[in-house]
Nucleic acid binder design. Structure first.
Length: 274
DNA sequence: AAGTAGCTCAACCGCGACGCG
DNA sequence: GCGCGTCGCGGTTGAGCTACT
């Protein structure tokens, strides 16, 4: 149902994502965050543009996303919010935990829009009215601070660095353990990366950095989760071995791509900030 | 059974907003 | 204020699936 994969004139792969690409992107972001979408594919070993990576993460790979039909309550809420906000899909999506703007937009165009024109009951793909949960089972569009913050955990605000990938609770509710075989082991000091993305790091001074390390020391349980998550035994340098060994073939075809070997056999994105 | 029209949804594209030097 | 780079949003596309003829 998606475009067939192909490589454009710049060596950038487009079209449907493979499982391997998904794994690479998921593993990279869960470990390092999306500190820079444009550069991320290079470091993650993906022959994709940053935009494509972002879209794939936001709409498909991000933890906490719902899949499947919209409930009647969700549908009603979408209709209500659309009446208030118009085509502000991202704003509407922020009120529907686990739903993406793209999903809501598609839903609107394929279901609600047509139904409003025809004024007929909503039908799902199978031609059945979509009721998946009792009204009491779902509470949406609340605006108390606590609830807002819980929504924020799913849909980070534009102006704040994204921490969602590091939330241990989200990690703990992730889908069945994906294959992280290409994920390199974390040196102890790398645990820092798992909690603080580079957007944040860029604004840290040295005292903040030490505070961050203090935070890590004070949250050993979370860190141990990260360690469990990345359970591969130490076999070599992170950037030189694990990612590059899996992606060297595809990367070698990317124009402008600089391999870890060319960078001296080691990639440390933090070097750009410290 | 074969052909076709309609539908779905992942992915792409273009543009505006924003931040930074 | 200006230019540049990056991000996110909204509109659009198109391949695969399903229903209909």
């Amino acid at each position: 149902m998606v475009r067939a994969p192909f490589v454009d004139s710049n060596g950038i792969k487009k079209g449907a994502w493979s499982e391997e690409e998904d794994d690479k992107l998921r593993a990279y972001i869960q470990r390092y965050g999306h500190w820079n979408w444009r550069l991320l594919p290079k470091y993650a070993g993906l022959a994709r543009c940053g935009k494509s990576c972002r879209l794939r993460w936001v709409n498909y790979l991000k933890p906490g996303l719902k899949k499947g039909n919209f409930t009647k309550q969700e549908e009603d809420l979408i209709i209500q919010l659309h009446a208030q906000l118009g085509n502000k899909w991202s704003t509407i999506a922020a009120k529907l935990p686990g739903r993406t703007d793209n999903e809501i937009k598609n839903f609107w165009h394929s279901h609600v829009d047509k139904r409003s024109k025809k004024n007929t009951p909503a039908k799902n793909i199978k031609g059945q009215t979509s009721y998946e949960s009792k009204p009491s089972e779902i509470t949406l569009c609340k605006t108390t601070p606590n609830e807002a913050s819980s929504l924020d955990a799913i849909k980070p605000q534009h102006s704040t660095p994204s921490f969602d990938a590091y939330d241990p609770s989200l990690l703990s509710t992730k889908e069945p353990q994906q294959d992280c075989s290409y994920l390199p082991p974390l040196p102890e000091e790398d645990l820092f990366y798992s909690k603080f993305n580079y957007g944040e790091l860029s604004s840290l001074d040295s005292s903040d950095y030490l505070s961050a390390l203090d935070w890590i020391n004070a949250n050993d349980d979370h860190m141990s989760m990260s360690s469990d998550y990345v359970s591969q035994p130490v076999q070599g340098a992170f950037w030189a071995d694990s990612f590059s060994s899996n992606v060297s073939d595809s990367q070698s075809e990317i124009i402008g791509y600089v391999s870890p070997q060319e960078m001296g056999g080691f990639y440390d994105p933090l070097l750009m900030y410290f």
